[in-house]
Design a protein around this nucleic acid. Structure first.
Lengths: 348, 348
DNA sequence: TGGCGAGATGGGATCGTTCCCATGTGAGAA
DNA sequence: TTCTCACATGGGAACGATCCCATCTCGCCA
């Protein structure tokens, strides 16, 4: 269907068809061929057609390396995420990819697995390939700083490292947490556990802040023992949750600070035969597929993750082309999706 | 923490630090600097140290475009998937990324959204950037053919287009389907619906074949009306499933041919208040997070998706470096995970 | 003492593209 | 007739790294 099959050779040396080959085939110079294919500068229509035809016939594909070397953009945009296996980052990447593809740019994806070293390596790679810009979910300041220092356009996504000079697109974590916990408080819950897996990142901090703010607003004191921090990449999250619930049998509701924790909490509640929400209510930050599949559905703070990817990519593209003014910080709003996992506090 | 902050300039022109700058700073020639940093050829230890120091001080980052242009590999590997938002492809990409990163290569991710045109555009981009190789989940023959014709190492993943000259890593879909349906037949089910969303790809075909084979083995005739094909990217899958169930009230079990369909079936069964498995059993091809979160858990054919990504990437790396012999076709085994969604056929 | 080869360095060509500039047309104005 | 200017084309120098090859200095052996 493609045409000539495997016989489309015509280049003198080995393998690649270069602009020179096209020019020779069309009987012109490389300069003219370049102008004809790029579409700028003067080229007679008849010659332009001949060159185009030759390019098609030979199967000419321009070499980005050469183009990039000459000073153009590489057409590559880097994206650094912390765990592609997590649906959150996958959605983010999907939004980014979609936007970049529409603009004719390619997505280079690096997973740092939460390690600053890996992030630094990724940043170096992006620099090395002359990426048009970089989107990153920061795991520390080093990578962002290195990129910004070298004048690379950077947009931070989901989290912020605090480095000056880069744009950001985030979701209002504090607001989301406040609404989620406020929702529980309004239903009479007074001993609400918050379980989180990291507090090093600003998202974790903000969610904790929201948890506290909701309590303050409701005039309910928050007890330190009700906040469980598992740490990033916990070895046995379910076991930890289990131990925590053993020690705090009085909690009537759990606020899980992200989807990974939420999964562990849900499984542990099921394992110990607790009914949700009759025995314990549950709200998760970050709405996942499974939360609407289970019975009852899990009340969750929905984050516009895909859109965040889209917006971040758009912002980066603008920054990469135009000169752009001061760093922009866009904050998207989360939305509380009420399902069946939250009930008024059980009377006992 | 990084060191000198934003004052690490020392280059003559604007922006980039090149090998020439490093050489000048170290008082040697570009040739020597190149040899010192690449680590091949003769360089006196003292000079090598001086060059290394200068490179670090100036923050030298080699330019891949230049290196690539000179004939080296670009260090980029393309991956073409059909829907990044689908956890299946995200897992696949994660496996690929992990393996490539360990080998110092970068992943360029393109989503074709199931469109042959987009796939072709992606292929052109990979060619253009002189990718070291390409991994793709084919949506047709065109893209693969174009790449293979030009001597690009290609490994097809999950599906095969039938193009000669490329490696492949797939999962035995027919076996998986046969086991899943056999599992239902062994429990007495005789009217088992198969619901799928595409039959253009060989995975869909193989699953249908497995469905038929299982029936043949059990000596149960298969009725055409029990196979529902929604088509790729159906507008209203749940509605279609609903209509199908209305027309075929006698089915006692459903075999959903992939996770997307499985989701629709599960939701529709829930919506119409059917109890799983009491009223209707369910088996899904492709195990997803939600299937082990719901109650009862959904019996599913687990595919080693992440591993498939790993193996495909390994295969490609080998092919890209060595000369490699004849095309290899690796087939991974799926595994039936029995959960609560399948029961012996209800007696009525 | 001459020669040879390992150790060490630099010069310059090369990869494929873009783009600046020089050169060359012909038409229309002065 | 000559000048100008829009149109049209090709030559050649970049871009930054690599690598072949020429050069040069030793130490050591015949």
């Amino acid at each position: 269907m493609t045409g000539h099959g495997s016989n489309g050779h015509g280049n003198s040396k080995r393998g690649r068809v270069t602009l020179r080959d096209v020019a020779e085939a069309a009987g012109t110079s490389r300069s003219t061929a370049s102008r004809a294919l790029a579409g700028n500068g003067y080229v007679a229509d008849s010659i332009k057609a001949r060159i185009q035809e030759a390019a098609d016939r030979l199967g000419y594909v321009p070499d980005v390396s050469a183009r990039t070397l000459k000073g153009q953009s590489s057409g590559l945009v880097g994206l650094l995420v912390s765990d592609l296996r997590n649906q959150f980052y996958a959605q983010l990447a999907a939004g980014v990819e979609q936007t970049l593809a529409a603009a004719g740019q390619q997505l280079v994806l690096v997973d740092d697995h939460g390690s600053e070293d890996q992030a630094a390596a990724g940043a170096r790679a992006f620099l090395s390939m002359r990426a048009a810009g970089v989107l990153l979910a920061p795991v520390g300041k080093a990578a962002t700083q290195a990129l910004v220092d070298r004048g690379m356009p950077v947009v931070e996504v989901d989290r912020r490292s605090g480095v000056r000079g880069c744009d950001s697109v985030t979701i209002d974590s504090e607001l989301g947490a406040r609404e989620a916990v406020g929702h529980l408080l309004a239903r009479g819950h007074r001993r609400i556990a918050m379980i989180t897996d990291e507090t090093a990142w600003d998202t974790g901090q903000a969610r904790l802040k929201g948890y506290r703010a909701a309590h303050r607003e409701a005039g309910v004191p928050v007890s330190r023992r009700l906040v469980l921090t598992l740490g990033l990449r916990p070895a046995d999250p379910i076991g930890d949750v289990s131990a925590f619930l053993d020690q705090n049998p009085d909690v009537t509701a759990v606020f899980a600070a992200n989807n990974v924790v939420g999964e562990a909490v849900w499984q542990e509640l099921k394992r110990r035969g607790q009914r949700v929400p009759a025995d314990c209510s549950l709200v998760c930050f970050d709405d996942m597929t499974w939360m609407r599949m289970v019975e009852p559905g899990v009340t969750a703070v929905r984050q516009p993750v895909y859109d965040m990817g889209v917006r971040a990519a758009e912002m980066l593209l603008k920054r990469a082309t135009g000169i752009g003014g001061r760093p922009a910080a866009e904050v998207l709003q989360p939305e509380l999706v009420e399902r069946g996992s939250t009930l008024a506090v059980p009377q006992r």
